[in-house]
Design a protein around this nucleic acid. Sequence first.
RNA 1: AGGGGCGUAGCUCAGUGGUAGAGCAGCGGCCUUUUAAGCCGAAGGUCGUGGGUUCAAUCCCCACCGCCCCUACCA
Length: 516
Amino acid sequence: MEFEPIDQFQQRQKKLEEIRALGFAAYPHEFRSTDGPGALVAAYQETPAAELEAARRNVRVAGRIVSYRLMGKAGFAHLQSCGQRIQIYVKLDVAGERAFKLFQLLDLGDHIGVAGHLFRTKTNELSIWVEELFFLSKALLPLPEKWHGLSDVEIRYRQRYLDLVANEKSRQVFLARARITQELRRFFDARGYVEVETPMMHPLAGGAAARPFITHHNTLDMDLYLRIAPELYLKRLVVGGLDRVYEINRNFRNEGISTQHNPEFTMLEFYEAYSNYLDLMDLNEQLFALLARTITGSTTVSYGEHQLDFSKMIRLTMREAICKYWPAEAGPAPAPAELAAPGGPRAIAQRYNEWAGRAGKERAFRKGTPSDGEWTGLLFEAFAEEHLIQPTIIYDFPTEISPLSKQKPEDPALTERFEIFIAGMEIANGFSELNDPAEQERRFLEQIAQGGEEAPKQVDVDYIRALCHGLPPTAGEGVGIDRVTMLLTDSHSIRDVILFPLLRPESPASSPDEKA
RNA sequence: AGGGGCGUAGCUCAGUGGUAGAGCAGCGGCCUUUUAAGCCGAAGGUCGUGGGUUCAAUCCCCACCGCCCCUACCA
């Protein structure tokens, strides 16, 4: 198989044959290096030339050629490995004829190994004086341009390997992402949590309201749903005595794609027995401050034009947020008591929508006939959410939109639930878990009765049965890892923090049978 | 799904209703301390795809494909 650009591909294949003809294996099996470019540069950055000469430091280093300057009978190149590079100097009379012929046949992108010793060039750059050259692997296709790098976002997403080689920024984003999950594991492990893996293929899609992907198992001849949330399985584990569990894994939701949504995304979910949502709020403040400091070095993080302060979190009830962010032009703001009154949220929404319609603003709207609790949620989303730039905990969600949350003892219209908003994005969702099986069954049935594509189609009977065996008072939470990564790496599209975001398949461009 | 934008050499980008350009990469030559190496030379294109208008379309019009952004959807 050959790939564009064909001429360069063939040219490089030809060179590979010539390399073979020199007696080098085209795809050798090993090369033992003593040091990586990064370690050498770090260790000898300050060592003067005279010292390098006096006490010769022999090294063997491997890497990808990312710059290459051939000047007759000598040449320079930079070898890159792990994002760090070191210069090599290859001289005909030092390396020998065969090695120098090999050097002449190299291209940007090839992997090689060198053996030699450290020295400094005229311009004082730490370099390797190459005595032996080893061929490791040929790049049959050219790297993106060295100066401007790779900026075509489509290629960056489709051929992430090129993006990672060419763009240090991209490399840093994914290293940060790895450190985030690493830090999360450290955080929860240190608190006595057990990491588990629950099914990704569910006979029933539960634990969230979302349209699932459907797949099929042949032998069992049954349809399965890719999970939309691990929630119901994790709580079964708490019933089973794993009092503190967490899982970091993918969820799949068959819904829109945007700068904040990818059909598969990574969630951290964790459950802690004998805690409630207030405990989780405190834990979140610690967790996010720690993450910000570990990943960015500070609890103040630049995100676009904003400086996000992760040292604390603002706390507002949902009703307070609605009152606080009520647009001044829409008339007098409602009072929390109005929102609490039966029929209140609906009346307030009418007032708001009247103004929003005139002002051309987003209306609080949903098909059908929303309940008070749903109106409250709609109002919040219509105009409050966008204002939540600084890390904010919104708590006390209406019961009607929180089917898995425990009600507040003093007000059954509200649940002990909160969400964290940062930079206008929903980052986390946690609550005191509803552990009354009769009430849970009632809520499930209510959801099913309401219908809609995102509602569950049937009661998860085994989950109710598990609750009947006794779920201790428990608090649980889900955190969107992709979005957290966006915040901590100043990335403004979720595709920039997912290695291989979902895109339409590359069409064979000119396939004539595409037309229907 | 609706609105807007983009698609020109491998990469980064100019450009024009009259048969297409630069830099880098690649090819040939010179060059034994360069670093965006340099100098000389040659090559490289279905201007996203398909229609239409026109004497003539990469450019204007229509449709389609892909990507990006906004809106909608997304507890």
